[in-house]
Design a protein around this nucleic acid. Sequence first.
DNA 1: TCTTTATTGCAAATAAATTTGCAATATTTG
DNA 2: CAAATATTGCAAATTTATTTGCAATAAAGA
Lengths: 125, 125
Amino acid sequence: MERKTSQRVAIENIFQRENRPLGVEEILKEGREIVESLNQATVYRNLKLLVEKGTLKPISHPVLGILYERTGRGHHHHFHCRICDRVFELPGCMLSETSAAPEGFVTEKHEVFLFGICPACGQQQ
Amino acid sequence: MERKTSQRVAIENIFQRENRPLGVEEILKEGREIVESLNQATVYRNLKLLVEKGTLKPISHPVLGILYERTGRGHHHHFHCRICDRVFELPGCMLSETSAAPEGFVTEKHEVFLFGICPACGQQQ
DNA sequence: TCTTTATTGCAAATAAATTTGCAATATTTG
DNA sequence: CAAATATTGCAAATTTATTTGCAATAAAGA
């Protein structure tokens, strides 16, 4: 049966706390602040389990590569801050799929990636 | 000085003819129909030159990875057909950057990827 | 607490994409 | 046409991301 290890708990907590898509490197870095021995392989293994369990799903970001985000939060877009390099989920959708493509194209789904400066970084300037 | 080899010309012609973003594999496959000896390394080397020259630019597609498209065609979105796996450029933009992100986020640019069925594949069904 | 075994850390192994060394080839210019 | 050298094909080398074998560790239940 599945065991509740400190590293597994740490990884899950990081997703809860950050509440945004995270990459392996980021998870590893933050995870080591909680469990200093945390290894890359452990992160990969737990991410795989969490994806299989349906807790997380991988997304492919055009700049940052593969990130993991929590499932079950409905359609949303992604915002990438060029200052802090964090990605945020933006709930809601301002894109009309029917008018997004010309006549003849049947749009079934879409992904929107926004780039710029997040509120936290904007204030510090 | 730069030489006009058959393989270089072939690669440039493929972009002209297809008029859509292309991946290395696709370029190699089509290129070999023109110059059968065409090698992968040659494709990579020529793509690099064309990018440096400013003729092409790489885009990172969330599903297909890195594709190359011709520069100077203004802002557009990308449509990926799940039947033929081709990517098309959709000129125009139906996304309002100001309303795309909540208060506090400063959006500087964006990328939209649409997924579905292209006109050609839609007709064949 | 003891036993079972899931999980971890580490290093080595894979996988996939891209680059590079080098001899052979082909384009360009005199 | 000959000479100079940019370019190619090929295979090996890199690079980066991810996976795996294995012995050591640590949850969980009896």
